[in-house]
Nucleic acid binder design. Structure first.
Lengths: 195, 195
DNA sequence: GATATATCTGAACGGCGTTCACAGATTGCA
DNA sequence: TGCAATCTGTGAACGCCGTTCAGATATATC
């Protein structure tokens, strides 16, 4: 009785693994149902017994990526806990940059996938994002102890978006692509002048 | 002899107009060669006598959008010339936000189109971007007269990217979508604390 | 072992960007 | 004006895509 469930789970996992590897190598646009089927040794139709469509499969990959991203930033926070709050902000931003630079296509997939069409945003997505925001909010609270909660919340989002923008455009050759050390410097320029 | 050139130019223009309208209404993904041909009253194949592919057509639309974006930001700079440099930075950032919010799909197309594959980035693209950077660099130079040129250049890019990130994620419902007034406030929060 | 249920199969469907052999119009030249 | 050369428009056809579905197959239940 466990036989079928095992095979089910194994195929499901293999498909996610393959999709992850493919996105890592060639980006979202290189993901093809027929390639996945060939790689997993199944028919194309079988994919749709496990996922509603390829977008759902991409979301699974994004879930993994988001988890690793959270771990990377969280690790930086832990390592920097002795530093003053501003330095902690910079440390986690640099961790964000490093993660994005090292796994560019997987990281890009987090934001490129279209998900607003079907149902609402998945829970894990909002939770993962909330986790990142929490990392940012903590040092900010120390830096601005008198700031109202609403404003601090806004500032959290603003700083995340700023760093995200610097990383996004900095890694994009066509916009203002620059060496990673300069991206690091840009993050420092902005964050050091805050507060 | 001008007859054929007229028709050529007219069809070319009509195709760009149609593509612009379609992107404005449904985004890049809704652009379809057969719809364009039907709208322009020509055969699908005729499109490819005027553009290498649909991507080249999109780039034409982006050229227009970039021009209008430059005008919008430039207008804000002109109107704020009496203000102190920091307020000018905020004024042009708000103009950037307003433009992006009012013409969201056209603005998104500027960054969504894939152009790194074929040849190098078009000239007008780099020039338009350079124009935007110049608007930012001027107030910064006043604010930091002793800053080395290289660092000022980096700071220009950093601030542009920051504002871009705040606008990008602020307008995106799934990430941290918020009302436009709050996006405005976020821009102020970051820029007011600079320098 | 027989029946019911769930899964897998892969050809087929509709839609896409792009191509190409052909038809038609326009131009340059005698 | 007539004729050939050249360029432009035509739309069916090509190859690829995600997705579907009737039929084949394997598993679970009794």
């Amino acid at each position: 009785m466990g036989k079928v469930d095992e095979r089910r789970a194994a195929l499901r996992l293999k498909l996610i693994d393959l999709a992850e590897a493919q996105i890592a190598e060639g980006g979202l646009v290189s993901l093809r149902a027929r390639d996945l089927a060939k790689g997993a040794g199944c028919a194309v139709g079988a994919i749709y017994n496990h996922f509603d469509d390829l977008n759902a499969l991409i979301l699974e990959v994004n879930g993994r990526t988001f988890t690793r991203l959270g771990e990377a930033v969280g690790g930086a926070v832990a390592q920097a806990e002795a530093l003053d709050p501003k330095q902690r902000l910079i440390a986690m931003s640099h961790a964000y940059l490093d993660f994005a630079a090292e796994q560019q296509t997987l990281w890009r997939a987090l934001f490129d996938v279209q998900m607003s069409l079907d149902g609402p945003v998945p829970d894990w997505y909002l939770q993962a994002l909330g986790g990142l925001f929490a990392y940012i909010a903590a040092p900010l609270r120390e830096m601005f102890p008198d700031m109202p909660e609403a404003e601090l919340d806004l500032m959290t989002r603003a700083l995340f978006s700023s760093v995200h923008g610097i990383v996004l455009l900095g890694l994009e050759r066509r916009i203002s692509g620059v060496p990673i050390d300069q991206i690091r410097e840009m993050i420092g320029q902005v964050l050091l002048r805050i507060g």
